[in-house]
Structure formats: structure tokens, C-alpha cells
Amino acid sequence: MSYGETPSQTVGPYFAYGLTAQQYGYDFTDVVDPVVAGPDADGEHIRITGQVFDGNNDPVNDAMIEIWQADANGTYAENPVDVASTGFRGLGRCGTGTDAQNRFYFDTVKPGVVADGAAPFVNVIVFMRGMLVHAFTRFYFADEAELNARDDILQSVPADRRDTLIAKRVETRTGVEYRIDIHMQGDAETVFFDV
């Protein structure tokens, strides 16, 4: 017997006190937050940050971004026990409504390579009011040009749109940041994947 999928519906404007309560200062715990890797996790500690822009090129202040990535060795943390012992969770969630510039951010480690012929990357899901179905994308890393040039999925993207998936490395006072914006529409529209 086969069953039909339950349709997706928008996360709406009021998700924060349910899904990102601590980030927004509501009296409820978060199961997932912007800390993808704790201070004890192995690997190069980085912050990933950026804004989400709508079709008018205005920053979106009620989007929610989730990421899922491998650890520094290229392994996905599927066992919750491992998460507790290594400090690496692999999963992050951040709303864009708490930063003055509506940025999302994730504190994580740079992922390792998960398979031969792949560059390091982060899986991304974009949710917001005005999206009935979430969109999948990926963040790659600008300083991995050699591996990026061999990555099957990145190379399957038309060359003039590949840059929309590549986060730029910036050395800041507090550490290494990768910056990447998500454009929902327009000339710089981010490449989304039918995962």
C-alpha cells in the first residue's frame, strides 16, 4: 500500500516561540540552535553568516535557516550519544529576526569531505513566511577552489550561477567567518536544489 505525502505548509511569521525560543528570548528551550559545534569539537572553528533577500532585495527578518553538515572528518553525526561526547551536533537552526541586520549565523567547524570527488559543503534549508514549501541549497567554501572545481553537484550548476553557492572567507578579530547571502529571486538568485 502506498500513501501520499503530507503537503508542506508555511512556517508562517510566528514560529519563533516554538522553534527558536531561546534565540528570541521566549521562555522555552531550544532543541536546535545556532551552535552546530561546541568549543570541544575537532576541526577548524568557523562562523557562517549572511542575510536573506527577497525579490525587492530587502533583507528578510522572519526567515529561519537550518543547516546539516558533516564533522571535520567528513562524518555525519547521526547518533545523539556521539553528539554529547564530541560536542559536534551537525545540525543548526537560526532565525533572522534577532540581529539588527537580519543576519543568520552558525558557530560550527569546517566540514570534511564526505565522499571522493566532493568538496566540503553544508546542506541548507530555507523557511519563511511566504514559502509554502521549504527550499534546499548548499554552502561551499571559497578557499576550496580546487575541490570545488571537481565537485559533481557544484559542477552540475550552470557556471554563471555557481557563485551563489560559495561562501567567502573573512578573517575577523574574533576568528574565521564565511559570508554568504541567500537571494530568493533576481539576477543573483541562489541556486536551490530538488533534493
Binding site: V60, Y76, G130, M131, A135, Q185, E189, F192, F193, V195
Partner: peptide, 29 residues
Amino acid sequence: YKSTLLRGPSRLPLAIKSGLTEGTGPRFA
């Protein structure tokens, strides 16, 4: 649903072969 007009991607999502990444997912204690 008017908010979709400026917020939904205007281009079709690119199909990719589902692999290790998409097959894994977080587990919650």
C-alpha cells in the same frame, strides 16, 4: 498567497542525485 510573490524562488530547483548527505539526518535523544 501574496507573500510568495517576492519570496518564492522564481527558477525551478535543480534536480540532484540523492546521496549520502540527503540520506542522513539528525537523531534526537
